[in-house]
Design a protein around this nucleic acid. Sequence first.
DNA 1: GCGTCGGCACTTGTATGGAAGTTAAAAATC
DNA 2: GATTTTTAACTTCCATACAAGTGCCGACGC
Lengths: 227, 227
Amino acid sequence: MIITPKNPNETNREYAFRVISDNIISLDIVPGSMIGEQEVASELGLSRTPVHEALLELSKSKIVDILPQKGCLVSMIDPDLIREARFLRITVETALVEDSCELAKETDLQDLEENLQLQEFYLQKDPLKLLTLDNDFHKIIYRICNKMQCHYMVSLMSMHFDRVRSLSLHSVKDLKIVSDHRAIFEAIKKKDPAAARAAFQKHMARFELDWNIISSEYKQYISDSNK
Amino acid sequence: MIITPKNPNETNREYAFRVISDNIISLDIVPGSMIGEQEVASELGLSRTPVHEALLELSKSKIVDILPQKGCLVSMIDPDLIREARFLRITVETALVEDSCELAKETDLQDLEENLQLQEFYLQKDPLKLLTLDNDFHKIIYRICNKMQCHYMVSLMSMHFDRVRSLSLHSVKDLKIVSDHRAIFEAIKKKDPAAARAAFQKHMARFELDWNIISSEYKQYISDSNK
DNA sequence: GCGTCGGCACTTGTATGGAAGTTAAAAATC
DNA sequence: GATTTTTAACTTCCATACAAGTGCCGACGC
């Protein structure tokens, strides 16, 4: 597991949650492996309590599965849950990009544009940074519509999705996400809901295509019941 | 706080979560009041740990607000969060009722019909039972579409909404929800997505109208920043 | 050799005490 | 009397200890 330093203003529980999440999404903790509270606590220099609470939260999105008196299983890649995460994101964010056309203020458009600039800068340089910027882009949309609580709920489930996306980041295709984002941005700027909707759905459709590649290439990580 | 007996196969944490949730939704714990872990733990005959973990989970949906070293504040009724909950439910479930037209099997239709029978039976008899059946009806839709994880996420946020709905249950208008449900059911049965969508949106639109009544009548429970 | 039982090593769930921080009232000072 | 400082009583957060359940592994009977 990759340990990052503790942010001074986060609690031990939040620290544990962040580190474990990052390691699961980056696949540094491999799907299907067991992790113990004590083991994680020792690595992070904490007691079991905050780690226990962090795992509890992760288990709510089924990204880990707590088996009482047995251990904590990092979930295998589960196509059903990925479909749910995709469904939720597409459904919610399609509605949001439409609403954004009305709601986006000038400063909001600036925030989106700044994010896009950075995306174009880091394109093909730093895939991990690009992933972060991608998430930020979508998050700004939620902020424009004043739906941050929805963002939290959706992002929890998206972990299933993010884990697969990081697998496919090496694929050249995914670099098209940046131009997708620009198309979405332009539509919002022009206050054209139909165009925004179309651009967003085109964006999300890419991940449908990738599924076949991923499932054949990373078979060992995929839940047995769905092969 | 109203204490219900502990279900034998639930953990202490799940027990605490259930009892606290129920009391918040039913307004037996009034919005804006502070509750302490120790206080709740004593009432339930538990230690602070499972109560702490239950409150932690509730704080994720902002239904309570944990103020470190101060206490746990049961959130005031917050129109913004209710709007988010409504938005999420409407957006997600509109998509689901459409999909249900394709996906619903014969047994699923039977489940829906049985639920409707019970709704009609308890109509004007037991408002609380009706609320449960209403939630069950929507839950069946999620199950038909194999989106139970989405259901969990949406239902967490819906607590804000449910709390207001219980206020308006005495209003005669709400008894129309049963006929709304039947209309949705009939549309799914006829595999008519457009009709299902229309019926569902009509259903959810009722709660928009109720808002004015509620906000004027229960002013004391509403968050100051939104009056 | 095979099946069963018992105990040990391990896990998570929970209880409890102390640490750190906030609040508000009491006490001291002006 | 008004204002500032201290202090005491509260809270959650976290560390630690114990309780309870699971599975493995060897011993034993057949």
